[in-house]
Amino acid sequence: MKIDEQHDAALAKVAEMVDDAKFAMLTTIAKDGSLQSRPMATMQLDSEGNLWFFTSLSSLKIAEAQADQHVNLSYARTDKQDYLSLSGTAELVRDKEKMHTLWSPWIKPWFPEGLDDPDLALLKVSITAAEYWDAPNSAMGRAYGLVKAIATGDKDALGEHQKLDVKGE
């Protein structure tokens, strides 16, 4: 995965958490209005706050994202108790040069023909808002925070929670 330098403090925090988690659950809106989620491997967070994923043109997620571009990506590191929720807009991209830049042998099982696979495409998600929950780094710190919160009611010791305005829609 490639994480570009972020020039915005909010995106820098997002980049740190995305780099740590690597895999997201992408949620789209189905025709019947229900929410559909599936795992996606993050290939890049570019310097403009766009996340890039390889996808299949024929997948249901593409049809859903084209019908309603509003999507959500959620990242989790349960071992660290760190969570990230990103709202954004999805766009289908068929740029061969960009695909070549992001290609990894790890993608080949899904696209055996490689970059020449006619079903291969990119999904670009432009982040519009972010919310995160970031617990203390050590298990001892998390345990201390929990004990303090139980004893005093002070939930601040459990970690940091922030809503970030990344880009206005």
Rank of each mutant, 00 (worst) to 15 (best):
M1H: 14
K2L: 14
D4S: 08
E5W: 03
E5V: 02
Q6P: 01
H7Y: 07
D8G: 03
A9R: 06
A10M: 00
A10D: 11
L11N: 04
L11W: 01
A12V: 08
K13V: 03
V14R: 09
A15G: 13
E16T: 07
V18S: 07
V18T: 05
D19Q: 10
D19S: 14
D20R: 15
A21M: 10
K22C: 03
M25F: 02
M25L: 11
L26S: 13
A30Q: 12
S34W: 04
S34V: 05
S34K: 13
L35I: 15
A41V: 07
A41E: 11
M43P: 02
Q44L: 02
Q44G: 00
L45F: 06
D46G: 00
N50A: 11
N50Q: 04
F53R: 13
S56E: 08
S56W: 07
S59C: 10
L60S: 14
K61G: 01
I62S: 04
I62C: 01
A63K: 15
E64C: 03
A65S: 11
A65F: 12
Q69T: 00
H70M: 13
V71H: 12
N72Q: 13
N72K: 10
L73D: 06
S74F: 10
S74Y: 06
A76E: 12
A76W: 04
R77A: 11
T78M: 10
K80V: 10
K80M: 09
K80F: 09
K80L: 14
Y83M: 00
Y83D: 01
S85L: 10
S87E: 14
D95P: 04
E97G: 02
M99G: 06
L102M: 05
W103K: 05
W103G: 04
P105V: 05
W106M: 07
W110A: 14
F111H: 12
P112F: 14
G114C: 06
L115V: 01
P118M: 06
P118R: 05
L120R: 08
A121F: 02
L123K: 12
V125F: 07
S126C: 09
S126F: 07
S126I: 04
S126V: 10
I127A: 04
A129M: 14
A129G: 14
A130Y: 06
A130E: 03
W133M: 02
W133G: 00
D134C: 08
A135S: 15
P136T: 00
S138E: 10
M140P: 04
G141Y: 12
G141V: 03
R142D: 09
A143H: 08
Y144F: 15
D154Y: 07
D154N: 12
K155F: 06
D156P: 00
D156M: 08
D156I: 00
G159K: 07
E160G: 01
D165M: 04
V166N: 00
K167L: 07
E169L: 13
